[in-house]
Amino acid sequence: MQLIPCPWCGPREEAEFRYGGQAHVAYPEDPSALSDEEWARYVFFRENPSGPFAERWSHSAGCRRWFNAVRDTRTHELLAVYRAGEPAPEVTA
């Protein structure tokens, strides 16, 4: 059972969290202006890197806050955790 450091509540077991997929995928400014392909990229396509990956988590059984975490997908190690709205920190795996 991995610990995930909630930026507010501190480290808690992963069972308290919900996964939200890739972080920093902004909702398009004007979806109607996008081509079908551009829209499909937003809806269906996500990165799948081997290494650091910025993703969203929600402390759903705790403070219910969404936040961002950089996880090394090879080891699951959380390299950084930061609050929603904050820029992704520089990390090295």
Binding site: G20, A26, R56, S58, S60, R64, R65, W66, G85
Partner: peptide
């Protein structure tokens, strides 16, 4: 119920704060 509340919070906290 829980899913929809999470869904609302997700949009409010991450897209439309």
């Amino acid at each position: 119920a829980a899913k929809v509340l999470d869904w609302m919070e997700e949009w409010l906290q991450t897209e439309w704060p």
